[in-house]
Simulated assay, not measured.
Amino acid sequence: MGNHTTASTFFLWGFSSFPDLQVLLFVMIFFTHVAILTANLFIMAAIKLSHSLHTPMYFFLCGLSFSETCNTLVIIPRMLVDLLSESKTISLLECATQMFFFFGLAGNNCFIMTSMAYDRYTAIHNPLHYSMLITRKVCFQLMMASWVLGFLVSLCIVLIVFSLSFCDSTTIQHFFCDIAPVISLACDSTSLHEVLIFVLSAFVLVGSFILIMISYVFIVFLVVKMPSAKGRYKAFSTCSSHLTVVSIHYGFAFVVYLRPKKNDSFYEDMLMAMTYTVLTPLLNPIVYTLRNKEMQLALRKVLGNANRFIHQMANKRLVNI
Rank of each mutant, 00 (worst) to 15 (best):
Met1Ala: 05
Met1Lys: 01
His4Phe: 04
Thr5Gly: 00
Ala7Cys: 04
Ser8Asn: 03
Phe11Met: 02
Phe15Ala: 09
Phe18Trp: 10
Asp20Arg: 10
Gln22Arg: 15
Gln22Leu: 05
Phe26Gln: 04
Val27Glu: 02
Ile29Tyr: 01
Ile29Ser: 04
Thr32Ser: 13
Leu37Gln: 06
Leu41Glu: 06
Leu41Arg: 10
Ile47Gly: 02
Lys48Leu: 11
Leu49Val: 03
Leu53Ala: 08
Thr55Lys: 11
Tyr58Phe: 14
Leu61His: 04
Cys62Lys: 15
Gly63Glu: 10
Leu64Ile: 12
Pro77Ser: 14
Leu84Asp: 08
Lys88Ala: 08
Lys88Gln: 13
Lys88Trp: 01
Ser91Lys: 05
Ala96Asp: 06
Thr97Pro: 00
Met99Lys: 04
Met99Pro: 02
Phe102Trp: 05
Gly104Asp: 04
Gly107Leu: 02
Gly107Ala: 04
Gly107Tyr: 02
Asn108Gln: 11
Asn108Ser: 06
Asn109Val: 06
Cys110Ser: 12
Met113Gln: 12
Thr114Arg: 05
Ser115Ala: 15
Arg120Phe: 01
Ala123Gly: 00
His125Lys: 14
Ser131Gly: 00
Met132Asn: 05
Thr135Ala: 00
Arg136Met: 00
Lys137Leu: 00
Leu142Gly: 01
Met143His: 03
Val148Arg: 01
Leu152Phe: 14
Cys156Thr: 06
Val158Glu: 04
Leu159Trp: 06
Ile160Phe: 05
Ile160Met: 05
Ser163His: 14
Ser163Tyr: 10
Leu164Trp: 02
Cys167His: 10
Thr170Met: 03
Gln173Pro: 02
Gln173Glu: 15
His174Ile: 07
His174Tyr: 14
Phe175Ser: 07
Ile183Cys: 10
Cys187Asn: 11
Ser189Gln: 11
Ser191Cys: 06
Ser191Val: 13
His193Asn: 13
Phe198Gly: 05
Val199Tyr: 04
Ala202Arg: 03
Ser208Gly: 03
Leu211Gln: 05
Ile212Ser: 01
Ile214Ala: 08
Ser215Met: 01
Ser215Glu: 03
Val217Ala: 10
Phe218Asp: 05
Leu222Cys: 01
Val224Pro: 00
Ser228Arg: 01
Lys230Arg: 09
Gly231Thr: 01
Phe236Asp: 08
Phe236Trp: 15
Leu243Asn: 12
Thr244Gly: 12
Val245Lys: 07
Val245Phe: 07
Val246Glu: 07
Ile248Tyr: 13
Ile248Gly: 04
Tyr250Cys: 10
Gly251Asp: 11
Ala253Leu: 14
Phe254Asp: 09
Arg259Asp: 09
Lys261Gly: 10
Asp264Pro: 07
Ser265Ile: 08
Ser265Lys: 07
Leu271Lys: 11
Ala273His: 12
Thr275Trp: 11
Tyr276Ile: 14
Leu282Lys: 11
Asn284Ser: 15
Asn284Ala: 15
Thr289Cys: 13
Leu290Gly: 14
Asn292Tyr: 06
Lys293Asp: 15
Lys293Met: 14
Lys301Val: 08
Val302Asn: 03
Val302Lys: 04
Ala306His: 06
Asn307Asp: 13
Arg308Gln: 14
Met313Pro: 00
Lys316Tyr: 09
Arg317His: 10
Leu318Trp: 05
Val319Phe: 08
Asn320Trp: 07
Ile321Asn: 13
